[in-house]
C-alpha cells in the first residue's frame, strides 16, 4: 500500500486497485462466516464429515479445480495481452475464461442434480434420516458451493462486461485497470474454490 498523497482529477490506478483489494477483503470475510461454521461443525462431527465426504465425486471436483485454475491462467494472460495492446487476443482469452466458468457451472449442475436425484438436499426426508453430522455436511456443501457458484456467475458477468469494453476499445493498452480488477475478482473466486475442494472432497 503506497501512501504518497496524490491529487489527480480523473484516473487514479493505484486508488482503483486499492479499492478492489478492500472489496476482496469483504468477500473473504463473507465466506469466512461459512468457514467458521464449517470448522465448528467439523470438529463436533468429525466422523460423520469423514464418511459423508467419501460420497462426493473426487473426479468431478478435480476436473472443476483444473477448469478454474486454467481460467485463472487465461484471465492473467488476457491482462498480459492488453498490457501489450493486443486487444484481439485479450478478447479471445476473456472469452475462453468465461467459457471455462460456464463449464465449471455445468459440471456443478450435474453434480448437484445427481445428489438431488438421490434425495440428498436440504430438508429432504432421506437426508434428515441420516446423522446430524451428515445433515450439516451436506447443508454446508450446498450453501458454500452455492454461494461460490453465485460468485462464479457474478464473475462471468463482470468479465463479459469487460470483454465488451475491450471490443469497443474503452479498455485498452493504456487504460486496463477494469480488466485487472475483474481479474483480481476472478482469482478470488478461484482461490475460494481451492479451499472448498479439499474441505469437501479430499479430507476424507
Amino acid at each position: 500500500m503506497t501512501d504518497a498523497p496524490i491529487h489527480s482529477e480523473h484516473k487514479d490506478y493505484i486508488g482503483s486497485k486499492l479499492g478492489m483489494w478492500f472489496f476482496l477483503f469483504t468477500e473473504i470475510i463473507l465466506f469466512g462466516g461459512l468457514f467458521l461454521l464449517y470448522s465448528v461443525y467439523r470438529s463436533l462431527h468429525h466422523d460423520d464429515f469423514h464418511r459423508a465426504a467419501t460420497e462426493l465425486s473426487v473426479f468431478i471436483g478435480t476436473v472443476n479445480t483444473v477448469i478454474l485454475i486454467t481460467s485463472s491462467l487465461t484471465v492473467a494472460l488476457a491482462i498480459n495481452a492488453i498490457k501489450q495492446d493486443r486487444r484481439a487476443s485479450a478478447a479471445v482469452l476473456l472469452g475462453v475464461t468465461i467459457a471455462l466458468g460456464l463449464l465449471f457451472l455445468v459440471n456443478k449442475y450435474f453434480e448437484w442434480t445427481g445428489h438431488i436425484h438421490e434425495g440428498i438436499y436440504p430438508d429432504s426426508p432421506e437426508l434428515l434420516a441420516k446423522s446430524h453430522g451428515t445433515i450439516l455436511f451436506y447443508g454446508l456443501y450446498y450453501v458454500m458451493t452455492g454461494l461460490h457458484g453465485i460468485h462464479v456467475i457474478a464473475g462471468m458477468a463482470v468479465l463479459a462486461g469487460v470483454l465488451v469494453m475491450v471490443l469497443r476499445g474503452t479498455v485498452n493498452g493504456k487504460d486496463y485497470v477494469k480488466l485487472e480488477n475483474s481479474g483480481l475478482f476472478w482469482h478470488l473466486v478461484d482461490l475460494i474454490w481451492i479451499y472448498l475442494f479439499p474441505l469437501f472432497y479430499l479430507i476424507t
Partner: peptide
Amino acid sequence: PILAITLLLIIVERFFGVGFFDPAKG
C-alpha cells in the same frame, strides 16, 4: 460482511431449512 452472511443464512434457513442453527438437525 459477517452480518451479510448471517442475514443470508436466516433467509436460506427460512426457505430451505438447512438446519445450521436447528438442534433437531444437529
